[in-house]
Computed example of a mutant assay.
Amino acid sequence: MDRQITNAALRAIRRILRATDQGGRKLAAATGLTPSQILVLQQIERSGETTPSAVASALQFGQATVTNIVDKLEEAGLATRRRSDRDRRQILLKATSEGCAILESAPDLLQERFRDRFEALPAWEQAMILAALERLGQLLDAADIDAAPLIDAGIIDRSLR
C-alpha cells in the first residue's frame, strides 16, 4: 500500500512539472517570452510608468533579476527606459506599443490560474496546501532554495528570443 501512495504522489508531482513545462512552452510559442518576462512586462504596463525597484517589490523579484529581464525586454523593443525629469538618478520603465500588443495576445499564465483558484479556497484549505507544499520542498531538499513566487522551472531571467 505504501508503494502505491508513493507512486501516486510521484505522479502528482510529475503532472505539476509537466503543466509548468507545457504552460511555459505555450507562452513561449505565443509571445517568445518566459513567464517571468511576461510578469515584469505586465507590471510595467499596469503601472503606466514605473521604476525597476517598484517592479521588483511588486513581484517579489530581486532587483538584479528585474534589471536583467528589463534588459531583454528593452532589447526586444517591448519596454523602454528613460531618466526621470524630476530626479535624473531615477530610471522609469514604460511598455511600448509592441509590448502591450504582446500582452494582449499572451495566453493566461499558469500562475494566474493557480492564484485565482487558490485564493478562492477556504483559508483552512489554503493553509493545508501550503503546509503540504512546504513539506514537499523539505522532502526534496529544496526548502533553502531561493525562489520567486513564480510557476516556472527555468532560470528566472533567461532569454528565449
Rank of each mutant, 00 (worst) to 15 (best):
M1F: 06
R3Q: 09
Q4E: 15
T6D: 12
A8K: 03
L10Y: 14
R11N: 06
A12T: 04
A12M: 07
I13E: 10
R14F: 06
R15W: 09
T20G: 14
T20F: 07
Q22R: 14
Q22K: 09
G24I: 05
R25A: 15
L27D: 00
A29G: 15
A29L: 11
A29T: 08
A29V: 01
P35W: 11
Q37S: 08
Q37F: 00
L39Q: 15
L41P: 11
Q42F: 07
Q43H: 00
I44M: 02
E45Y: 01
G48F: 14
E49P: 08
P52M: 07
S53P: 03
Q63W: 12
A64M: 07
K72E: 15
L73W: 05
L73E: 11
L73K: 11
A79M: 02
T80R: 12
S84G: 02
R89Q: 10
Q90C: 02
I91F: 04
A95T: 00
E98N: 14
G99L: 08
C100H: 05
I102L: 11
I102R: 15
L103Y: 04
E104P: 01
S105A: 02
A106H: 10
R115S: 04
D116G: 15
R117Y: 02
L121N: 01
E125M: 10
M128E: 09
L136W: 12
L139Y: 03
L140E: 04
D141S: 12
I145C: 10
I145F: 12
A147D: 07
D152V: 05
A153C: 11
L160T: 06
